[in-house]
Amino acid sequence: MEKVRKGLARDLVAEVRALDKQLAANAAHLEELVAAADSTLMQTPGIGPVLAARLIARVGRASRFPTAAAFANYTGTAPVEIASTDKSRHRISRSGDRQLNPVLHTIAVVQIRMPNSPEHAYYQRKVSEGKTSKEAKRCLKRRLADHVWKVMLADERRAQSPAATP
């Protein structure tokens, strides 16, 4: 019985190691693709090759959104007011591309965990203003949507500039 358990454990460890290698190879390939797209998204703390690739693939051209608010609405990070009797609250919009919201959520969580980052300070300031953790994170996601849109727009403009073409 012990030999069977050890054999299964050995097989599982080998499988996990193979999957880790495959994940590392995929991340390296995505990093190459993001670099080929001439994107500076990975310069933002919390955005690695996987998240940058997901943003580029899901958004396409950032210039198709006339404003940061339109982009935030598309990503589902624009707050929607919910009014009930005397109380008015905000929640995340459920419209737009629902696969972009988790990307921004992941970036927000990573930035909140970085104690020396401006985003961490912003989140803490929102909490100290009386917002709940969820509300403060929602505010940070909205702010991140603005930042991502500006970076993608700048990347697009830089790629279209005459100096960028050979």
Rank of each mutant, 00 (worst) to 15 (best):
E2L: 12
K3M: 11
K3N: 11
G7I: 05
G7W: 01
A9W: 10
R10P: 01
R10D: 07
D11T: 08
D11G: 07
E15N: 12
E15C: 02
V16F: 12
R17L: 07
A18I: 01
D20V: 04
K21S: 06
Q22G: 01
L23G: 02
L23A: 11
L23C: 14
A25M: 07
A28T: 12
H29K: 03
H29C: 00
L33Y: 00
V34M: 07
D38K: 15
D38H: 12
S39M: 11
S39P: 04
M42G: 05
T44N: 01
G48N: 04
G48Y: 02
V50T: 10
L51H: 06
A52W: 00
A53G: 12
R54F: 00
A57N: 03
A57H: 03
A57V: 06
R58D: 06
G60A: 07
G60T: 12
R61G: 13
A62D: 08
A62R: 12
R64C: 01
R64P: 01
P66L: 05
T67C: 06
A69S: 09
A70F: 03
F71T: 08
A72N: 09
N73R: 15
N73C: 14
Y74W: 05
T75V: 15
G76L: 09
T77M: 13
A78Q: 08
P79G: 13
V80H: 10
V80C: 10
E81S: 10
E81A: 15
I82W: 12
I82T: 05
A83T: 12
S84K: 12
K87E: 13
S88N: 06
R89E: 07
H90Y: 13
I92W: 06
S93M: 02
R94C: 01
S95I: 08
G96V: 13
G96W: 02
R98W: 02
P102I: 05
P102E: 08
V103I: 11
L104V: 08
H105K: 02
H105I: 04
V109R: 10
V110T: 14
R113P: 00
M114I: 04
M114L: 13
A121T: 15
Y122Q: 03
Y123K: 07
Y123C: 05
Y123R: 04
Y123H: 15
Q124S: 14
Q124N: 04
Q124V: 06
V127Q: 14
S128C: 06
S128G: 04
E129I: 02
G130A: 13
T132E: 03
S133N: 08
K134F: 10
K134C: 05
K134I: 06
A136E: 01
A136H: 07
A136R: 14
A136D: 03
A136K: 07
K137W: 00
R138G: 10
C139I: 02
L140H: 03
R143L: 12
R143P: 04
L144P: 03
L144S: 11
A145S: 11
A145N: 07
D146L: 00
H147E: 10
V148C: 11
V148G: 03
V148A: 08
W149L: 04
A154T: 14
A154G: 09
D155M: 08
E156G: 08
R157P: 00
R158I: 08
S161T: 10
P162I: 09
A164P: 09
A164K: 12
T165D: 02
